[in-house]
Design a protein around this nucleic acid. Sequence first.
RNA 1: GGGGCCGUAGCUCAAUUGGUUCAGAGCGCCGCCCUGUCACGGCGGAGGUUGCGGGUUCGAGCCCCGUCGGCCUCGCCA
Length: 658
Amino acid sequence: MPLPYNKRTCYCGQVGRQHIGQSVLLCGWVAIRRDHGGMVFIDLRDREGLVQLKFNPETDPKAHEAAGRLRSEYCVAVRGDVSPRPAGLENPNLATGAIEVNVREIDILSGSETPRFPVEDEINVKDETRLEYRFLDLRRPVMQKALITRHKAVKLIRDYFNENGFIEIETPFLTKSTPEGARDFLVPSRKQPGSFFALPQSPQLFKQLLMMSGFDKYMQIVRCFRDEDSRKDRQPEFTQLDVEMSFVQMDDVLNVAEGYLVRVWKEVLGVDLPRPFPRMSYQQAMAEYGIDRPDTRYDLRIKDVTAICARTDFKVFSGAVAAGGVVRCIRVPGGADMSQSEIEKADTSLQAILRGIGAGGLPYVKVAGAQGSGFGVQGLGFGVQGSAGVSPGATAVPAVPSAENTAHRAVAQPGSVGVPPAQPGSVGVAPAFKTGVAKFFSPELTAELCAATGAQPGDAIFFAADKEDAVCKYLARLREEVARRRNLIPQGKWNFLWVVDFPLLEHHAEDNRYYAVHHPFTAPMDEDVHFLDSEPLKARAKAYDVVVNGTELAGGSIRIHRDDVQSKIFKLLSLSPQEAELKFGFLLKALRHGPPPHGGFAMGVDRMVMLLNGLESLLDTFAFPKTAEGYCPLTQAPSEVDEKQLTECHVRTVLPKR
RNA sequence: GGGGCCGUAGCUCAAUUGGUUCAGAGCGCCGCCCUGUCACGGCGGAGGUUGCGGGUUCGAGCCCCGUCGGCCUCGCCA
């Protein structure tokens, strides 16, 4: 009689001491077989974990004989008695390691080809192979955990928003192409020859319409589509939590978003996030971190030294300033121990990386003197300690270690290389720069730069001189690179913050027009509305982003609810009334029918799950992701279709010329 | 769309300057043996059109061209 596998008593991973003496019925997959000729052990795996099965030829010869036929990934049902393992034979590495199941009966429900790769957490297999055999890949415990965490987070979304009065409403996938933003995925219309639907990049316009429909508090967990190249943090289809609320101010929206994040971090990770999240202006983020999604877990903040560097004879500096650019720098505490190779010679040097994103080079200086003095870093075994850093009255250099110095005490670099021996006697004299562009700094400028940056002997200072946006880009990248290389990123920290005060518009020189920084429906700050007529770039938006450890997790805005303001924005965006009517006519029409003030946000669910799972790659948060080329090795999509299908939807393909 | 790297056994990789142990290793797999393993162990064995197509050469895994696929990166993308 076959085993009643539908009467499973519990999951493999849940068998424990409480089952000792009981009979259990388990279903799962063979993780491994250890066959001793006599005794046979099988690790049986299901989504909750592993348990050891024991097959004894003397007590259960029939089951033992079947066990000999088992191979990896066979699917089986077993009935057996749970017993404690003999003393000294417990396996502390296994949650179920205190017990084992003495199998009385076994049914082999199905066999398996030899798996293409082992079904275990630590594997060294190309992504492509994992994706082709995704059903096996997903059996791995880490993947099961990742998707279960995703389920928990998504369930919490529905719980939280339901409890707060939100209504989940679905919006169309077959919708209208929108001109702004990313490239659309298109779907040909069979009924309207020559016309196309677009898959939504987000339900932005629909959720605004729902506000105008009176639904007050809307949410949706929704798939979005963008036909752009994938990256490891980007997939062509992804999931957003989409939220919109009426009769709210910015703070109300931020509160709702924070409330959810605090809850999910608490319930999934057991982490208490402090509320409210700190806020940082876009201007501060760009000035100090060079990027609108600052990672505040480490310092290395950017300092503007344009005024000082403009007075050097270094043409890169003076030239950039003369051209209206800026000179900014990052001080790396203890950075004098970085080798020339690491900074500018090797293929993977900091300079090489910056050149890769368009920088001309990487000017730098090292501050001469005892390495590590002033902030307790000990290099090369020299006993120069913090207090010896700068003796009082020696120079104009501030002797007080700044907060950022303190922040790095815990992350001193062991094993520094390529640093000339420090002379204890040199501390306390005027600071001097060495190497790099040191020769362009007179003693006076050296002192000023040290004062401005808080530089101490043993530090390194890296510069970027160019147009402001370029400098930000270079130094943001440098900051991240240095922090990673020097292990300055503390683990286990969750630095949530709101970035606010975004500009409403940006100007692109190429086509000499304005673009919406967020999107065209974002409201300007009330006090900045008048700038729209005079200096549009000065207008700030009622927009906000949630940033966690340098990752943008969510973003949103208060929307324009007056059609006269909306029309003004369209005009600034060089959208003629006719074009605006053609593209967004339905929204403008709705805006003429009593729209409520409203705003909301959207959150990247996949990214959130990646963070919650501590993963590096988005791939592991999707059950069935695509490769960087947008290909699915499992289903082999996309694929060609029958000529008949093309004819039916009035499409002819024109392949690129070879 | 641009640039770079890569493709050899089921998996991960090696193979000097193009040459005579150049088709190899580890893991996995198959068979036999093994009663306390949990990285089980021992002995033996099978397994490759070097992604595909073309070219250069006396000779190509290696060099050249094309193509397919993968990864990284810039652009693009909130």
